[in-house]
Design a binder for these strands. Structure first.
Length: 667
RNA sequence: GCCGGUGUGGCGCAGUGGUAGCGCAACCGCCUUGUAAGCGGUAGGUCGUCAGUUCGAACCUGACCACCGGCUCCA
């Protein structure tokens, strides 16, 4: 997610005499220069942000930018990065400066240091930053006419020197070369004395005092200029806000995310685990997780069949040749588990299902009348993810894809992609994800060896996907270079309950594998033609989707997915038999219901059921027994007392079958 | 794969050189209770693994494994 580039105008353009500083202009317009709504920079007519002390080019159309706008927040965060860098060099004088851009909710700064930072160092740095901020430093822009001058100034900063020297693909976000212009910002104390400086394109806050609240979050290593071949620098991450309250809210959001973490909930709710004995990235689903997984699969299988897919099956391993034919092996040999050799052949665990489906297509002659031919399966694949990247259920080494391949004529491709996109979106909606945008991943023409097929083929395929994506009316984001080697793709990015986005489904247009497999169908005119294939995974992987759903619902799954849907809670032991009859009736309707027979008190049983996030608690005591009723407590805490047994059964059945959620997802 | 951090009963944690402790969960009792923790007792750990240092290692050193936070990668 990248921050929006625009900020809403605060006022009409300010008209001032030439030579006025932006700060004076802002003041003249009666705009605030302090506090949480402060104007911190201005935008010139070319859209570029400028410091408030910017005079020479000041224009009538300059637009004030407030600190709480997205641009203003970036300026605030970037300025905080400078304060961090100054603090680091104060405490670790040997530290060399990398870069320090703003990011979502914060900033980072990279440093070259002889010894990596320890998390405890953050406290010291925060303290020093606090002092700097309170002292009210300003950032003073200095311009250099020549490279030499700048280099002399930066003689002690090897990384900055490298930035100065970079020819061609200069990272314009980081600095500005071009036109021979290089700028250094000097940090000035309140008395106007220089106390620090950094090569930077700016702009910055007029004073560090506007940094209302910040916190250093973590240290990590990051490759210099993002390349694995470069040395690693120490990156310090922080967050920064105009006010303390905003920082507090942000930290609360992080806590909420931690509370929803599927890895924690997986243990708490007894859903799944990753036994050491299996190896990294290999999950087992426990009975409760198994229920959810099976419900997900059953539903998705049924929906596929409704949509005209045919359910197929294929093995987990194959001889090597198959993956040569498909073209995968040269690209993915590193990330496939190493081959097993026996009977004179190499066998690989499959890392993708498409080659298998291609063999099904090719198993007999195909007619145009069969197209689009839609094959679908839950295909388990194994990918040797690097040790540092496995992450809960969202990045694993063994996973199951709900993988489909639609074989169609090139003319049918657009309609098939449209069909798939609608299908995918309706499925996601059924699982409570209804806020999404699309990403169109295309070929990177500068890296032809990463992609197969001609430019014309790519252009055709991309045009088909783009047209369907556009007419969907959903937000569409370009992802140049993100395509698979065999073709472009649309991916659906879904926002969860707390606004995080997850890449979910993909739809990929492939004209290459049909070629490699020599797939053919007989056309109406009797000629043999080559189909195109559309790959699609709706969940992406069952495991990953499971993890995302767990976080989306914070473990409070909608009733139809809940491992235990109803728990009977007797007020006294002797009410248990009465509830057992009720539970038996529910089970007859296919409801997952149990009686809590533990010798805990009913309050404790309620607490246990709440922690298990069970949607329905059916409570019964003397009143209910004599009245032939049960009393519901829902997991959101609301109650419905004295519901007649038959009505209660019907109520539960209705909620479960309608697949709606009972109670707010956050408990 | 790279950098840093962490690894103690099912879960959450304490214990920095003298042969392991707390809370929850589990089990056994007592209590018989109307919407989020009643009380008492019992059992459970070769302290991630393997080497090493030491009279002695949960604690110090090394290697490996796993996890966490990032980076790089993600068909």
């Amino acid at each position: 997610m990248s921050a929006p580039r625009t900020s809403a105008p605060l006022a009409d353009p300010v008209v001032v005499p030439a030579g006025t500083t932006a700060a004076d202009a802002v003041a003249a317009a009666g705009l605030p220069v302090n506090g949480p709504k402060a104007v911190v920079v201005v935008r010139d007519s070319s859209g570029r942000l400028r410091d408030l002390d910017w005079t020479p080019e000041f224009e009538e159309s300059a637009e004030p930018v407030s600190i709480d706008s997205p641009d203003g927040l970036n300026v605030l965060r970037h300025s905080t990065a400078h304060v961090l860098a100054q603090a680091v060099q104060d405490i670790f004088p040997e530290a060399k400066l990398g870069i320090g851009p703003p990011i979502d909710n914060g900033f980072y700064y990279d440093f070259g240091v002889p010894k990596p930072f320890h998390p405890d160092d953050l406290d010291k740095l925060e303290k020093r930053m606090q002092e700097i901020i309170k002292s009210g430093q300003t950032f003073k822009r200095r311009r250099f006419a020549s490279l030499e001058e700048a280099k002399a100034e930066l003689a002690d900063e090897p990384f900055k020197l490298e930035l100065v020297d970079i020819k061609g693909d200069v990272d314009a976000e980081v600095m500005e070369v071009g036109g021979g212009e290089l700028t250094i910002y000097d940090n000035l104390t309140k008395d106007g004395e220089r106390c620090w400086g950094d090569l930077c394109r700016g702009p910055h806050l007029p004073t560090t005092r506007l940094i209302g609240a910040f916190k250093l979050m973590r240290v990590a290593a990051a490759y210099w200029r993002g390349s694995e071949r470069n040395p690693q620098l120490q990156r310090v991450y922080g967050t920064a806000w105009p006010t303390r309250d905003q920082l507090k809210d942000y930290l609360k959001l992080l806590e909420e995310a931690a509370r929803r973490d599927h890895r924690k909930l997986g243990t708490d709710l007894d859903l799944f685990s990753f036994p050491d004995e299996l190896g990294s990235g290999l999950a087992v689903f426990h009975p409760k997780g198994g229920v959810i997984k099976r419900e997900m699969e059953d539903y998705v299988r049924a929906r596929h069949i409704e949509e005209g897919f045919q359910y197929v099956g294929s093995p987990h391993i194959s001889k090597e040749g198959l993956f040569h034919t498909s073209g995968h092996l040269p690209y993915y040999a590193d990330t496939m588990f190493p081959p097993m050799e026996f009977e004179g052949a190499n066998y690989y665990l499959k890392a993708m299902n498409c080659p298998m489906h291609n063999l099904i297509f090719r198993s007999r002659g195909r007619s145009y009348r069969e197209l689009p031919l839609r094959l679908f399966e839950f295909g388990s694949v194994y990918r040797y993810e690097k040790s540092g990247v496995v992450h809960g259920l969202t990045r694993v080494r063994g996973l199951t894809q709900d993988d489909s391949h639609s074989y169609c004529t090139p003319e049918q491709a657009g309609a098939e992609v449209r069909h798939l996109l609608n299908f995918v979106l309706s499925l996601l909606r059924d699982f409570g994800l209804d806020d999404y945008y699309l990403e169109l991943s295309t070929r990177d023409d500068s890296k032809p060896d990463k992609f197969v097929g001609s430019e014309a083929e790519w252009a055709t395929a991309t045009a088909v996907l783009e047209e369907v994506a556009r007419e969907s009316g959903l937000e569409l984001v370009a992802d140049p270079g993100g395509a698979a080697f065999y073709g472009p793709k649309i991916s659906v990015q879904a926002r969860d309950a707390i606004g995080r986005t997850w890449q979910m489904s993909t739809i990929q247009y492939d004209f290459n594998q049909p070629k490699g497999f020599n797939l053919e169908y007989q056309a109406a005119d009797g000629t043999r033609q080559q189909p195109v294939m559309i790959h699609s995974a709706k969940f992406g992987s069952i495991e990953r989707f499971f993890g995302v759903l767990t976080e989306h619902y914070a473990g409070a799954f909608p009733a139809w997915l809940a491992p235990i849907q109803v728990v009977g809670i007797p007020i006294r032991d002797d009410h248990a038999d009465y509830l057992a009859e009720f539970v038996a009736k529910l089970r007859k309707e296919g409801i997952r219901a149990e009686v809590d027979y533990s010798d805990d008190r009913m309050q404790k049983k309620i607490r246990t059921a709440q922690q298990q996030k069970i949607p329905f608690m059916a409570i019964a005591g003397d009143d209910d027994v004599s009245g032939g009723t049960v009393s519901f407590r829902y997991r959101d805490g609301s109650q419905r007392n004295g519901v007649a047994i038959d009505e209660a059964v019907a109520h539960v059945v209705e909620v479960v079958r309608s697949r709606v959620n009972t109670g707010p997802s956050a408990e």
